[in-house]
Simulated assay, not measured.
Amino acid sequence: MNLRLWLSGLRPKTLPASIAPVLVGAALASRIINQLGTCIEIYPEPADCAANRTIAEPLQAHFWPVAILCMLVALFLQIAVNFANDYSDGVRGTDDGRNMAESKGWSQANGRGAKPQRLVASGVPPKHVLAAAGIAAVLTAVCGLVAVIISQAWWLLAVGALSLIAGWFYTGGRHPYGYAGLGEAAVFLFFGLAAVLGTEYALSSTIDTLGVAAAICCGLNAAMLLMVNNLRDIESDRAHSKRTLAVRLGEKRATIMLMICCILAWALGLFLCMYLWMPWGGILLISGIAVPIRMVSSVPKHQFRTALSDAGFQTLLFAVVVVLSAML
């Protein structure tokens, strides 16, 4: 067992992006709970204050356990999806030709230049990779079930089940939607709307307009990360009939769409952060504006390692600024 290869198969750069929407949802839920528990100290206490405090107290009691469980759900789900994609692409031969030298910048002079970068394509038995995906999926289900039992948000069971199904059929099954150009839409839904709003509801038993705005921003950030990845792989995907959105649109139009998504995400994110903490939330977010600029400018130059790092970083930047703005 090559530990370094398995760690690479985890695709660790994707993991922070899966946690970011949970942090955002938790921060906004905490804001809602704090508002419920805050009331002017007068006597006799107004009836609505007593009612709000009755609602807030149990939410505060289980906030951290549920928040940590939501984070574990997102983390294990991302790992399960990564291993499932590795398995499905590997058995289809889609990963053939993607070598470590191209993706990691290794020198071909060391004799390892032609080594494939994915687990199955590197010679790991497919059943081992599928087993790893299954273990991660079980851990996702267990953490999600415990979170639902604690929060009593039973409808989230359906969201969790749909997330696992979507993760498998992204590249698995006879007609994977990731091969039809729908990957970005699925990422937007599940790592944006579902992750943020599901976390917010599990922790606060409600969803508000700020949560929807934040979920859209997180969804766009996650979609941009996948778009950069698909732009990097556009030639090999086209050769293996994997018609991602980048393949369908072509490199030029896909790059333009990436820029549009970036502008929309930052415009909405700026409004949200300034609303939460005027004007410092907006100032904090603007301080990182060089990151998306470098991301979109790196793609036409085919500097995908830089673009992928920046796409991942901006998801965390947005999450951190929202958390600070909601708290302060």
Rank of each mutant, 00 (worst) to 15 (best):
V296C: 04
L5A: 15
I40A: 14
L285F: 15
K252F: 15
V247N: 02
D237I: 07
L264H: 05
G172D: 08
F318S: 03
C273L: 10
F63M: 08
V66Q: 01
R232Y: 05
L130N: 04
H302W: 11
L203Q: 03
A121F: 00
I289P: 00
A61C: 06
A50Y: 11
S205R: 13
E102N: 08
G281E: 01
I260L: 12
K13N: 09
E184G: 06
M71D: 10
I79V: 15
L220T: 04
L72A: 14
A311M: 07
Y43N: 14
G281A: 09
V212M: 09
A246H: 02
L197T: 09
E102P: 00
A202E: 05
P44Y: 10
D233N: 03
I165C: 15
L77G: 12
L3E: 03
M227P: 02
A61I: 07
L164R: 00
V146Y: 07
D86F: 04
C261G: 14
L156A: 06
V129T: 05
I256V: 15
M295E: 05
L203M: 08
A133P: 00
R112F: 15
L164M: 13
G312N: 05
A131K: 08
T140D: 05
A27L: 10
W6R: 09
I19D: 00
L28D: 03
C143G: 02
K252S: 12
L317M: 15
S88W: 06
Q117H: 15
V323R: 02
C49W: 04
A51G: 10
L258R: 03
L193K: 04
L276P: 01
P58F: 12
E41N: 15
L157Q: 07
A246E: 01
A186Q: 02
A161L: 15
W168M: 01
L139D: 03
V73N: 02
L308M: 11
N221L: 12
R4T: 09
P46G: 11
F271H: 12
I19N: 04
L164E: 00
A29K: 03
M259P: 00
G105T: 07
L264G: 07
P300I: 02
L5Q: 11
A147W: 04
I33N: 03
S151T: 08
L28A: 11
P46N: 09
L69G: 02
G93W: 07
V321A: 03
T54N: 12
Q117A: 14
E57D: 11
F169P: 00
D96C: 11
G172K: 03
S30M: 15
I149K: 09
A80T: 05
T315I: 11
H240A: 13
V323C: 12
W277S: 12
R243E: 13
R98P: 01
L270N: 11
Y87G: 02
W280C: 06
L220C: 09
E200D: 06
Y179G: 01
D310Y: 10
D48R: 13
I149T: 11
V212S: 08
A141V: 15
G312L: 07
V91G: 03
Y179V: 07
C262S: 12
V299I: 14
E235Y: 15
K104Q: 15
A27F: 09
R92F: 03
L226W: 02
L324E: 09
P12N: 05
R4F: 11
L164H: 06
V247Y: 01
S309V: 13
L189N: 08
F63I: 00
I150L: 14
F304V: 05
F271C: 14
